[in-house]
Amino acid sequence: MDEYVTPTGPDVPARDMVRRSWAATVAALPVGTRVTGKVLRRQPFGIFIRIEGVPDAVGLAEITAMPLGMELPAPRASVAGVVYWLDARNHQVRVRLDEWQADDE
């Protein structure tokens, strides 16, 4: 199976449901909200995430926030992070992953 193919199945929200549920997603996940979820798929530009507790939301963690030398999490991997932007144009919840945060201590 090609890891960059869009997955289908009962755990993947349908595009029309993501769009119709956008107002509820925005209300449930304001900027700064901590989220957890599972990687739905990988793309060359980042990962799409199924966010726990918000079944029709799609998260996106882009490689622009990924430190050099790290790799994208594998499909179905558990991830956690913080919402930093709500992209109304694409109905995506942009997430900065915890594992990509610089250790400033």
Rank of each mutant, 00 (worst) to 15 (best):
R19L: 13
R19V: 12
S21H: 05
W22V: 12
A24Q: 14
A24G: 11
T25H: 05
V26G: 06
A27P: 05
A27W: 02
L29D: 06
L29W: 08
L29N: 08
P30A: 03
V31F: 00
V31W: 07
V31E: 01
G32H: 00
T33V: 10
R34V: 04
R34I: 02
V35D: 09
V35F: 05
T36E: 09
G37M: 01
G37T: 15
K38C: 06
L40V: 03
R41E: 10
R41C: 02
R42I: 15
R42T: 12
F45S: 14
G46L: 09
G46E: 12
G46Y: 08
F48V: 04
F48H: 08
I49A: 07
I49W: 06
I49Q: 10
I49D: 13
E52R: 02
G53R: 07
G53M: 09
G53A: 07
V54Q: 04
P55L: 09
A57V: 11
V58T: 05
V58C: 10
V58I: 09
V58A: 04
G59R: 01
G59D: 09
G59S: 07
L60N: 05
E62R: 09
E62F: 00
E62W: 05
E62T: 15
I63T: 15
I63G: 05
I63C: 06
T64R: 01
T64G: 01
P67L: 03
L68P: 06
G69Y: 13
G69S: 06
M70L: 12
M70P: 06
E71M: 11
P73D: 10
A74Q: 14
A74H: 09
A74P: 00
A77E: 14
A77D: 12
A77Y: 10
S78L: 13
S78N: 14
S78W: 02
A80S: 13
A80Q: 04
G81S: 04
Y84R: 03
W85F: 14
W85T: 14
W85N: 11
W85H: 10
D87P: 11
D87Q: 11
A88R: 01
A88Q: 15
R89S: 05
N90M: 03
N90E: 07
H91T: 13
Q92S: 05
V93F: 14
V93S: 12
V95E: 06
V95L: 12
V95F: 03
R96S: 00
L97A: 06
D98C: 05
W100F: 01
Q101S: 07
Q101E: 15
A102S: 14
